[in-house]
């Protein structure tokens, strides 16, 4: 028997919205420690890895490892019926062919029950090694979303170059070119809200090119976290990570574009 509950069901709805445009179906691997999901887009250029810890749930029980094969668009149709402040419970039998989703309003005046048919999904999983990155940038997630959205109107490839002073996003296209630089925040602003700062950890300067359409896809997770962390290495996939307090994190990996 697997069951878990979130006080803020809305968080789960945002999680599904953050993955459903990149991968259509996926296996939620549930074990005693939490829920994980990994999915790749069809061209194997981008990968999303979700890691939810049991500590982030108000209730969590997983007697035996359970794999829930889910079509995210179908699940999203059911989650759409959930109230913004509803509590969400998920239940699945060990060998069941469906999973139940229960939404309960704060005052329990409204309770909704949905049963989602599960799928058998044979999914290729990639081994993502823990990597030491040359440059790690933490910045406001809304700022990153805006840069990706605005620059994609000028070019389809963004060059991200990082020095210890600043991170620069550059694009070029038919109409011309442009770049936006964010300077590292002064560490002195002890008053400033940390989530508004730009922090750069640099081992050595890095410059890499990425397709903006994937980055714009990743920024669908902006609602999950006030900050986003970008990790870059020379000729390495970019890691874009949104941490959700004690619930866990959603990480997106994007293969670089290499100049011929």
């Amino acid at each position: 028997m697997f069951e878990c509950a979130l006080i803020q069901g809305e968080l789960f709805r945002k999680l599904i919205a953050s993955v459903q445009d990149l991968v259509q179906d996926g296996n939620f691997m549930c074990d005693a420690n939490g829920i994980s999901l990994q999915g790749m887009d069809s061209s194997h250029v981008a990968l999303v890895a979700l890691a939810l810890k049991k500590e982030g749930f108000v209730e969590y029980r997983c007697d035996r490892d359970v794999t829930l094969g889910i079509n995210f668009a179908n699940l999203a149709k059911m989650l759409k019926c959930m109230g913004a402040k509803d509590r969400l419970s998920i239940r699945a039998q060990d060998e069941g062919d469906s999973a139940s989703f229960v939404f309960e309003s704060e005052d329990s005046s409204r309770v909704s029950n949905f049963e989602l048919k599960l799928m058998q999904i044979d999914q290729e999983q990639l081994g993502v090694p823990e990597t030491q990155y040359k440059a790690v940038i933490r910045m406001p997630s809304s700022e990153f979303q805006r840069i990706c959205k605005d620059l994609s109107a000028i070019g389809d490839t963004v060059s991200i170059s990082v020095t210890k002073e600043a991170v620069k996003f550059s694009v070029g296209g038919d109409i011309g070119s442009g770049d936006m630089s964010l300077r590292q925040s002064e560490s002195g602003d002890v008053d400033g809200d940390d989530s508004e700062k730009v922090m750069i950890e640099l081992e050595e300067p890095v410059q890499q090119n990425f397709a903006l359409r994937y980055l714009n896809n990743f920024t669908k997770a902006t609602a999950l976290s006030k900050t986003v962390t970008l990790s870059l290495g020379t000729d390495m996939p970019l890691v874009t990570e949104y941490k959700m307090d004690n619930l866990g994190s959603i990480r997106y990996y994007l293969a670089p574009k290499i100049d011929e």
Binding site: H44, Y253, A255, K257, E260
Partner: peptide, 14 residues
């Protein structure tokens, strides 16, 4: 001209 790499060049299938 820059060519789009795939993740399979960096991560191996498990």
């Amino acid at each position: 001209k820059s060519s789009q790499k795939r993740l399979d060049s960096y991560f191996k299938l498990i």
